[in-house]
């Protein structure tokens, strides 16, 4: 008997309910990104399992005619209920939106899956979810080939740049930037983030007052390299110091 079924295990990065009651999910799995539909799912127990940020095992069925695979069965493999908390929720959204933009369907990357899964776990459990998000955002970008240039001025390639790049979010030399240089700790972070391990970065969190500068760099870099990201809006006031925009 021919089989058009496959089993996959991944995290729900996006979830949309159609007016007909179908659930369309985007999963990040170790075998790549997958988009699939659970027909009538909103009325059944798949609505629970295929919840945003859930780690699920799914049985997918693909016919040659349909563009979306169908979710036949699903089992829950892990849930992170704390991601609904106001001080964590927007970060989980930002990381998911970033990961969705960075990884394409058909790209096999166990590392991408592990990094994204680790990022969500961190945002869920760590006492400093903002720091987890900053570190893991840069790590996701690096893995996808979008590491900011940090040894040379992004505009003139002069060595050891230390000033903010208000347009591109990278580092500029004093000649190319009209802004004062980054404070030493923030500069070190922005320079070393692509190379240092997650653990090392997590162990050296920046003080709260230096973070808005990192957020501004990250936001500029992502916007220029990848494009608009909706979640920034909810983080907007967090760049000003508050955690959640209200």
């Amino acid at each position: 008997m021919r089989s058009r079924s496959a089993n996959r295990s991944g995290i729900v990065m996006r979830r949309r309910v159609t007016p007909a009651g179908d659930i369309i999910v985007t999963l990040l799995t170790p075998q790549g990104k997958i988009k699939a539909i659970a027909r009538g799912g909103v009325r059944g127990s798949q609505a629970s399992r295929l919840n945003l940020f859930h780690h699920v095992g799914v049985q997918l069925y693909q016919t040659p005619q349909a563009d979306l695979a169908t979710v036949q069965q699903s089992v829950l493999e892990g849930a992170l209920p704390r991601l609904s908390e106001p001080e964590r929720h927007p970060y989980a959204h930002l990381l998911s939106e970033l990961a969705d933009a960075l990884f394409q369907e058909g790209e096999f990357s166990e590392q991408a899956f592990e990094l994204y899964a680790g990022a969500l776990r961190g945002v869920s459990h760590h006492p400093d979810p903002e720091w987890v998000t900053l570190v893991m955002s840069y790590k996701l970008l690096s893995l996808a080939g979008f590491a900011p240039r940090s040894r040379q001025c992004a505009r003139c390639a002069a060595p050891d740049p230390a000033h903010p790049d208000p347009l591109g979010g990278q580092l500029l030399c004093g000649a190319c930037s009209s802004q004062p240089p980054h404070p030493a700790e923030r500069l070190e972070f922005l320079r070393e983030v692509p190379r240092r391990s997650v653990r090392a970065l997590m162990d050296q969190p920046l003080p709260a007052e230096q973070r808005p500068g990192v957020w501004r760099s990250l936001e500029r870099f992502v916007t220029v390299q990848i494009g608009g990201v909706q979640s920034w809006r909810s983080l907007a006031s967090s760049l000003g110091g508050e955690v959640v925009s209200a």
Binding site: M1, S3, Q59, Q72, Q73, V75
Partner: peptide, 8 residues
């Protein structure tokens, strides 16, 4: 067996 999922 074909057609029998884990739940079934």
């Amino acid at each position: 067996l074909p057609g029998i999922g884990p739940k079934s």
